[in-house]
């Protein structure tokens, strides 16, 4: 009898927990939808803040996608601190007037809102998967003038990344970037790519590759890939002392240049 009542008590507690979790998740989804920041298709979970509506100011946009890696939803790695720290730096060093704390956006490639933000960032594209609608969205985004930053992937991740891009632009050619490209001089003069810090251990040097309009390096750079490194990891832990200040500075310089380039080219 006593045993039975214990079981009943556990069942009640378990039921209450499930109900509470369910209600919380529902409330979170509702909130995200209202502010435009949630989409259950991409396993956003409960750790994101909502999007800010468009008001003409620069807003950091992180792209969310299908696909899992490194033990969870890979697109969200380093969010939100990486995004927000970069915005703080941009605000501090330049005249850009970005949204900052709690005001960065998360958008899917098939979200019409994405077109209000011509610069977008994607983390861990090695795990990136796209629906046909997302593919169409990405194609239009780039064709109209959008600029993409791919970050935080290495080694075999490239193959998936390239395959996804080839779905959009079948003859896309990724060019190795050199320090004389305008993207490395749009704000800071970055005269050598050798000094750029490597986040991953034992993977060699970071590699920067660019995708150009009409595959012509003389034309507009439409996307840049920080392959074999993870800049946003530096951005995320900039206030923690995990990484050397010098290395973090270099990562911020790249981030600032990318965004200024994306706003002027």
């Amino acid at each position: 009898m006593k045993r039975t009542s214990h079981r009943a008590a556990w069942a009640v507690i378990l039921g209450a927990v499930v109900v509470c979790l369910g209600l919380t998740a529902q409330a979170q989804r509702g909130s995200n939808r209202q502010r435009g920041g949630g989409d259950e298709r991409f396993q956003t979970g409960g750790q994101i803040h909502g999007n800010v509506p468009y008001d003409g100011r620069f807003t950091f946009v992180r792209l969310m996608y299908r696909g899992f890696g490194r033990g969870g939803t890979s697109w969200i790695h380093d969010y939100p601190r990486g995004d927000e720290h970069l915005m703080k730096i941009i605000n501090a060093v330049s005249l850009t007037n970005p949204h900052m704390d709690g005001e960065t956006n998360i958008l899917a490639l098939d979200d019409p809102e994405l077109f209000n933000y011509p610069v977008a960032y994607m983390a861990e594209p090695g795990f990136w998967q796209m629906s046909e609608a997302e593919l169409a969205g990405l194609k239009a985004y780039i064709e109209k003038g959008g600029f993409l930053i791919f970050d935080d992937f290495r080694f075999e991740h490239w193959y998936n990344f390239e395959a996804q891009i080839n779905r959009v632009f079948p003859r896309a050619i990724w060019h190795e970037m050199t320090a004389d490209h305008p993207v490395f001089h749009s704000f800071y003069d970055i005269n050598s790519l050798d000094i750029i810090p490597q986040y991953f251990q034992n993977y060699g040097k970071p590699i920067f590759r660019g995708l150009f309009e009409d595959n012509d390096p003389q034309k507009r750079l439409i996307a840049i890939a920080n392959y074999n490194t993870d800049l946003s990891e530096f951005w995320e832990f900039a206030d923690s002392g995990v990484r050397a200040i010098e290395d973090t500075n270099e990562a911020f310089k790249l981030g600032v240049n990318y965004i200024i380039y994306g706003m002027t080219h």
């Binding site: 620069f58 330049s94 005249l95 007037n97 011509p118 965004i259 706003m263 002027t264 080219h265």
Partner: peptide, 13 residues
């Protein structure tokens, strides 16, 4: 242009 913003990019384009 007094501040980085997208107007400059697209006018150039």
């Amino acid at each position: 242009e007094g501040e980085p913003r997208f107007e400059a990019k697209f006018i150039k384009q």
